[in-house]
Structure formats: structure tokens, C-alpha cells
Amino acid sequence: MDGMFEMYLEGSIEPDDIPNTREPVYILGKKYNAVQELDIIRQDILSKVWFTYRKNFVPIGGDEGLTTDKGWGCMLRCGQMVLAQALISLHLGRDWMWEPETKDSTYLKILGKFMDKRQAPFSIHQIAMMGVSENKEVGQWFGPNTVAQVLKKLVKYDEWSSLAIHIALDNALVVSDIREMCLSCESPEGSGSLKCEKGDWKPLLLIVPLRLGLQDINPIYVSGLKKCFQFKQSLGVIGGKPNLALYFIGCVGDEVIYLDPHTTQKSGSVENKETEEEIELDCTYHCKYASRINILSMDPSVAVCFFCSTESDFNDLCHSIKRDLIEPEKQPLFEIAYEKPKQWTPTLDDAVEAADFELTGDFDSEHEFEIL
């Protein structure tokens, strides 16, 4: 991947990122015409924050710790991309576009939260160290649910965004649980919750971990997965192809469009983007050309993501899920319930990490996104 990235930069090969087709192209809920809007599609993709492997950063876990995440950090980087896009949508709007000259203070503040240093709240350092609480040692592969659980813990420390993360367990979206979380506030003492004033809603990053097959995606799920990219609340899919974590941001026909973290770049800090070095470094957080693969080539372990800035967004998403994902599909991706079923046994915080897919039987970790 590193060599391919360098060839793109040098312009020695023609990109094959978006096909010349009349089929609609969807990028995080926005519909495009590939023939008439290719430049706009590419600008939209370029505006997504792209996190990749980095090298020569401050050691993780002390002076003897790791100074690169090459070979183990791709799922962590995909988690960063999802969270960064949620913050961009929240603070700048879904239609915000990045350009090399961009020096927007809000954008730079968001980007700064992900820099490769211990103090940054969503750095590779913070995610890797918080992963220890999820039984993942530093340098060990994460599954899609593990990175979601870690991000859920870390966002609680970002008062500026006041973002809530809900992870739907057992293929079920429980509306009452989400509403209770997004319409409540932490008490000053942290000893419970206080109801917010009417109309207050914590912006929601909703993550639905799924297993869509054993070793390959079951074709029965393809239609539903493609529809997820079409919802206006779409924040893409954390997933990959066997042994490689990828961030899927859209689809066209039977192919999915993704950002690939498997490029190793130097570490640094963009800060206020005042020096030439900082300007150049900012450009390394944006991918000029996305990639695509057939949807059936995806690993069946995925986490579908949505962002609801307002209560109205969430209500609309629930309606869309019921109308487009559940009612017409023979085998829905997941179910939606307004109250927790009586037979429900796990709690939201204490449940077994079902979405890292600790399946019973003869399944090894090679198909569970846990390769070291």
C-alpha cells in the first residue's frame, strides 16, 4: 500500500477510485452522479480526515514503548476516522469541505485531538492504553467492537463536544436506552444523572457491531448494508477485508468505497498550521483518492455507524431503519425495539463483547479481526 500511495502522489498512475458509471455513488449519505460530479465526489472524499499508520512518535506506554503503530494499529486508525467525522459533522457540518489552504480554527482543534501524543484525548496513545481495560495489550489487534468500546470511554472526557456513543448489542437497537442516554446529563459529582432541560440532546454516535456471515458475507445482507450508506445519518462502516481493517465511507453498485490506513507516514503535529512543515503535515491527513472493492470481499465482521446531531435526526433514522432495513428485508441487518426485551440479559456496559465475535466452535481469530 505504501508504494501505491507514493505512485498516486507522483501522478505516475491513473486513479481508479470512482467508476465511470451512471449508477449513483453514495458517500456518507450523500448521493452523487459519477459522470457529472466526479470532481465534487473527490473533493468530498478528500475532506474526510484520513488516519494512517505513523512512525517516530512519542513511545506508547513509557520510554521503552512502541514508536509506530505499523502492523497493529489499522483498526484503531479506523476508529479515529469515524470519531473525527462525527466531530466534523457536529462542529462544521456534513457539507464542510477541506482544502490545502484551510486554517479553520475549529477544524484544527478537532484534528489536534487526534495527534500522536499522550496529551491528545483521541490519540493512538490514548486508544491503545485504554484498550488495556478491554483486555488488549498495547500493540495487539483490536476488533471493531473493542475500538468502539474504547472510544465510548474516551469521549466522556471531551466536554467541548459532549458526544454520546451508544454501542448496540446483540443485533438490537433499543430506542429507550438511547433516548435516556442522550436526554440526560451527568451530575456534577458524577453520582448519577440529571434530566436536561427540554430540547437538550447529546449528539449521538451510534455504532452497531454485526457479524454478517462466518468466513464471508452472506449475500442476503448485501442490500441492507448498501442502504446503510444511503441514510443521511450514515457515518460509514468500520470493517475490512480479511486481516486488514478499513473504513468504508460509501458504495457504488456492488462495490464499497473505503479509506485505507495501511500507509506509514511520519508523525508530527499540525498545531495552528503556521509553518511550511505544519501545512505539509495537514495534507497527510487527507486522502486524494479512495479505493473500492466488491462488497462480498469484505470481512463479515463489521460495525455500522451513524451520527445524529439532534433528536430529530435520531427519530428520522429510526423511521428509515424500520422502513428501509427491516420491513422490506427477508433477513434484516439488525432489529429495532422501543423498549428492552424482557429476555435481554446483558447490560449495555457489562455485556460480553459479542461484536468481537467470540463465536463458539472451530473459529480462529484470523476471521475475527484479531490478527497480531
Rank of each mutant, 00 (worst) to 15 (best):
L151W: 07
M181T: 09
L173I: 05
K153E: 12
I178G: 01
W141F: 13
I178L: 04
M129F: 02
A148G: 10
G131W: 06
A128P: 07
L151D: 08
Q140T: 14
H166R: 03
K156F: 03
M181I: 09
V147G: 07
G143I: 03
N171W: 06
V138I: 15
Y157A: 13
V175L: 00
K156E: 11
Q149K: 15
M129I: 12
N135I: 05
E159V: 11
A148P: 01
P121F: 07
L154C: 05
L173C: 06
L169P: 02
E134S: 12
V150S: 07
L154Y: 04
A128M: 10
E134W: 07
V147E: 05
N135Y: 11
M130V: 04
S123T: 09
I165N: 04
E159R: 13
L154A: 03
K152P: 04
K156I: 09
N171Y: 10
V132I: 15
R179M: 11
N135H: 11
T146Q: 14
E159Q: 11
G143F: 07
G131I: 11
M181E: 09
L163K: 02
V138R: 12
V132K: 14
A164N: 02
A128T: 05
C182M: 04
V132E: 14
V150D: 06
W160V: 06
V147A: 08
S133T: 15
L151V: 11
I124L: 13
E134M: 13
V175N: 03
A168V: 10
K156V: 10
A164G: 00
A168T: 12
I167T: 06
Q140Y: 13
S123F: 08
M130Q: 14
L163G: 03
G139Q: 10
D170S: 08
L173W: 04
N135A: 11
I165L: 08
R179E: 15
E137Y: 13
A164E: 13
V147H: 03
S176F: 00
S176H: 02
E159D: 11
Q140C: 12
K152F: 02
I165M: 05
D158V: 05
I167E: 05
K136D: 10
K156R: 12
K152Y: 03
K153W: 03
F122E: 01
K136N: 15
T146L: 08
V150L: 07
P121N: 07
K153A: 09
L173Y: 05
C182N: 02
V175T: 03
W141C: 10
N171G: 00
L163E: 06
F142W: 13
F122S: 01
N135K: 12
T146W: 08
C182I: 05
L151G: 10
K153R: 15
S133L: 15
L154G: 05
A148I: 08
I178M: 06
P121G: 09
M181S: 01
S123H: 10
A168E: 07
V138Y: 09
I178Q: 02
A172P: 00
L183K: 10
Q140E: 15
A148Q: 08
E180L: 06
E134Q: 15
N145Q: 15
V155P: 02
E180Q: 04
A168L: 00
N171L: 01
H125I: 01
L151E: 09
M130A: 13
P121V: 11
R179V: 14
P121A: 10
V147Y: 02
A172V: 09
V150P: 09
F122I: 06
E159S: 12
W141A: 15
V147S: 07
H125E: 06
